[in-house]
């Protein structure tokens, strides 16, 4: 049990009104507060399709799957979102792609993946018909635009473990074009 001990701010001055028998401490006109953390270690099974996608990330590749009408869905799903049929085989896409939408995050919160201002963006990898959500690390909102070309900046091999964070961020694709695996 975490100990309540942090007295913070004169939030309420009247809580002893009508009391006086309790012999409170000198700091008795302040409400007790405390910082608490609730945390569950949680491990979920990912299934064969997302498992393959995450395995691809670990290998430094972006994988999608074929869906109805020949569409390529990224990240891959087990079932087609329109027909509910099982999806087809896995295909490699990208790694470069096009930004289809974005929102600038000027003040990243502690749980955000980077500690500096970034954009959340939807990136449609080349060869895919859907976009995936990831961080766009461009440095400034002036350098983000819908339609811009980006590439995934993978963590170095050995640091990749099979999770979406294996892509540190998407970054502007160089004029030379081809995105690389670090």
């Amino acid at each position: 049990m975490q100990r309540l001990g942090h007295v913070h701010g004169p939030c309420c001055r009247n809580f002893e009104r009508g009391g006086g028998r309790s012999g409170m401490s000198a700091a008795g006109d302040q409400v007790l507060t405390a910082e608490h953390v609730l945390e569950y270690p949680y491990s979920r099974s990912v299934g064969p399709v997302i498992g393959a996608f995450l395995t691809g990330l670990r290998d430094g590749r972006l994988l999608g799957c074929t869906g109805s009408g020949g569409r390529v869905i990224v990240p891959p799903t087990e079932y087609d979102p329109e027909t509910a049929e099982s999806t087809g085989e896995l295909v490699e896409v990208g790694p470069e792609g096009t930004v289809t939408a974005w929102a600038w995050v000027g003040r990243p919160a502690p749980q955000h993946p980077l500690d500096r201002p970034v954009a959340w963006g939807l990136v449609k990898p080349d060869g895919a018909d859907t976009a995936l959500l990831h961080v766009l690390d461009t440095g400034s909102p002036d350098t983000v635009s819908t339609g811009m070309r980006v590439r995934p900046d993978f963590l170095p091999e050995g640091e990749r473990v099979g999770r979406i964070g294996d892509i540190r961020a998407f970054v502007p694709a160089g004029p030379a074009g081809r995105g690389g695996v670090g």
């Binding site: 309540l4 491990s43 979920r44």
Partner: peptide
């Protein structure tokens, strides 16, 4: 192949006893 994903669920909160 990757079969599991660790996704710890964490909530930092400020408790006021009132």
């Amino acid at each position: 192949q990757v079969t599991t994903l660790d996704t710890p669920i964490r909530l930092d909160y400020h408790f006021s006893a009132g």
